[in-house]
């Protein structure tokens, strides 16, 4: 038997070792997931290709996809969604890494503080952002009182603005503590002697960060930023309430198509939703592949052999 075959065999043997009770115990949860998620996905797919439509003749057609992909609005919305999700994810990743490093030596209170924003609903956060950043908001009034601006017209537009500052501020407020919490846990698992060892081998603090701390932190960074990206990319209520009025993000486009009086738009909405999921999943897969370091890893140390 070749080593590869033996490995494959061993893997299956590992699965066979699991008792039938374990499979039985997993069954209820698994069937629920399959029924609700898989079933929903299947129905959505059937609707999007015209097989289960409310309108039309019930024959297979890719018209909904054609309409979705053919509209310039789709591409603008995709651009906007990517812009918001990528910018916010990148910003919160960088800031969270810095914050986690700062709080590394702090006690349990640091982790506790990071959990404070977790239970606050997004809607409450959105209301807070509106109260703070809108042209008649607290900050605007404070600046007016201080005499820094003469009317609320002088206050920069930070809510429902084309640059989506309000949306991103909200996401940063929500996601930085979340990411910091994850990164803190990973950091605490890295043995402090490793940094000591690196220093003693000639690494400056900066080199120590790039060569040792960051690579060891990488799995945490990848998973935390994935969760944040996936969440922001698919989020509806924040850009809906705080975002620019045109263009709108992809989830809003889906919502608008779905609630359109024209029932034909229903299948377009579902096609859009599936496209949104597909884009999200592909980006996550690409990111995981890059994050694993697989494409960059050199197999042979010391050159040609």
């Amino acid at each position: 038997m070749t080593p590869a075959a033996r490995l494959k065999n061993a893997r299956w043997a590992g699965l066979r070792d699991v008792s039938w009770r374990a499979y039985l115990l997993v069954l209820p949860a698994l069937s629920l997931v399959l029924l609700l998620f898989g079933g929903g996905l299947g129905l959505a797919f059937l609707q999007s290709v015209g097989l289960l439509g409310l309108t039309g003749d019930g024959s297979l057609s890719l018209a909904a996809y054609g309409e979705a992909l053919g509209s310039s609005q789709f591409w603008r919305s995709l651009g906007l969604s990517l812009y918001i999700a990528l910018t916010t994810t990148a910003l919160s990743t960088v800031l969270s890494i810095g914050l986690a490093l700062l709080l590394r030596g702090a006690g349990r209170w640091a982790s506790f503080a990071c959990q404070l924003t977790l239970p606050i609903p997004h809607l409450v956060g959105i209301a807070g952002i509106l109260l703070l950043l809108s042209p008649s908001g607290l900050i605007s009034r404070l600046l007016y009182t201080l005499g820094w601006i003469s009317t609320d017209q002088d206050f920069p537009l930070l809510v429902n603005d084309p640059a989506n500052i309000g949306v991103m501020t909200h996401f940063l407020w929500k996601e930085i503590p979340f990411m910091t919490l994850i990164l803190l846990a990973v950091l605490r698992g890295i043995r402090p002697e490793l940094a000591m060892q690196a220093r003693a081998l000639g690494a400056s603090p900066w080199q120590c960060f790039w060569q040792v701390t960051l690579p060891l932190l990488q799995p945490g960074i990848v998973s935390a930023s994935l969760i944040v990206f996936g969440f922001i990319f698919g989020n509806f209520e924040v850009p809906f309430l705080l975002g620019s009025t045109y263009p709108r993000t992809l989830p809003i486009l889906v919502y608008q198509a779905f609630t359109n009086v024209d029932l034909n738009q229903r299948s377009v909405a579902i096609a859009l939703g599936l496209l949104l999921s597909l884009i999200s999943i592909s980006l996550i897969a690409l990111y995981l592949w890059l994050g694993s370091g697989q494409p960059f890893r050199r197999r042979n140390f010391g050159g040609q052999r």
Binding site: Q197, Q207, Q218
Partner: peptide
Amino acid sequence: MALVLQRGLLFPHLSVGENVAFGLKL
């Protein structure tokens, strides 16, 4: 100077060769 610690603390994200070359890379 160079320091060797109790458990031969190697950098887990680097291969054995990269570990040995670490100080030279720096």
